[in-house]
Amino acid sequence: MALRAGCEHYARSCLLKAPCCGKLYVCRLCHDAEENHQMDRFKVEEVQCSGCQTLQRAQQACQQCHVQFGEYYCDICHLFDKDKNQYHCHPCGICRIGPREKYFHCDKCNLCLAQDLQGNHKCVENVSRQNCPVCMEDIHTSRIGAHVLPCGHLLHKSCFDDMVRTSAYRCPLCMHSVWNMKEHWEQIDIEIAQSPMPTEYQGTSVKG
Results as ranks from 00 to 15, higher is better:
Leu3Pro: 03
Ala5Arg: 07
Tyr10Met: 09
Arg12Ala: 12
Ser13His: 05
Leu16Cys: 08
Lys17Asp: 00
Ala18Phe: 10
Cys21Tyr: 08
Leu24Lys: 00
Cys27Met: 03
Leu29Thr: 05
Cys30Asn: 01
Cys30Glu: 00
His31Lys: 00
Asp32Asn: 08
Ala33Tyr: 06
Glu35Arg: 01
Asn36Gly: 02
Asn36Glu: 08
Gln38Ile: 13
Met39Ala: 04
Asp40Glu: 04
Lys43Phe: 11
Val44Glu: 01
Glu45Phe: 15
Val47Trp: 08
Gln53Pro: 04
Gln53Gly: 08
Thr54Glu: 13
Leu55Ser: 09
Leu55Ile: 15
Ala58Met: 06
Ala61Lys: 12
Ala61Arg: 06
Ala61Leu: 12
Cys65Gln: 05
Val67Thr: 10
Gly70Pro: 04
Glu71Ile: 06
Cys74Lys: 00
Ile76Asn: 07
Ile76Arg: 09
His78Asn: 11
Leu79Ile: 09
Asp81Val: 11
Lys82Ile: 11
Asp83Gln: 11
Asp83Tyr: 10
Lys84Tyr: 10
Gln86Met: 11
Tyr87Ile: 01
His90Met: 13
His90Ala: 12
Pro91Met: 08
Pro91Ala: 06
Ile94Ala: 11
Ile94Glu: 11
Cys95Leu: 07
Cys95Gly: 09
Arg100Thr: 13
Lys102Trp: 07
Lys102Asp: 12
Tyr103Phe: 12
His105Tyr: 12
His105Arg: 00
Cys106Pro: 05
Asp107Glu: 14
Lys108Tyr: 10
Cys109Phe: 13
Asn110Lys: 10
Ala114Pro: 06
Ala114Phe: 11
Leu117Asn: 01
Leu117Thr: 02
His121Ile: 07
Cys123Pro: 11
Cys123Leu: 11
Val124Trp: 13
Val127Phe: 13
Ser128Tyr: 07
Ser128Thr: 08
Ser128Met: 10
Gln130Val: 12
Cys132Val: 03
Val134Glu: 03
Met136Ala: 15
Glu137Asp: 14
Asp138Lys: 13
Asp138Ala: 15
Ile139Asp: 05
Ile139Ser: 07
Thr141Ile: 14
Ile144Gln: 12
Gly145Glu: 05
His147Gln: 05
Val148Gly: 05
Cys151Gly: 02
Leu155Glu: 05
His156Leu: 02
Lys157Asn: 06
Lys157Trp: 07
Lys157Arg: 09
Ser158Pro: 00
Ser158Thr: 09
Cys159Ala: 02
Asp161Cys: 04
Asp161Ile: 05
Asp161Lys: 07
Met163Val: 00
Ala168Val: 15
Pro172Val: 02
Pro172Thr: 01
Leu173Gln: 09
His176Leu: 14
Val178Gly: 02
Asn180Phe: 10
Met181Glu: 14
Lys182Asp: 15
Glu183Ala: 15
Glu183Val: 13
His184Gly: 04
Ile188Trp: 13
Asp189Pro: 09
Gln194Phe: 07
Pro196Leu: 01
Thr199Pro: 07
Glu200Trp: 14
Glu200Leu: 15
Glu200Ile: 08
Gly203Cys: 03
Gly203Phe: 00
Thr204His: 04
Val206Glu: 03
Val206Ala: 09
Val206Gln: 02
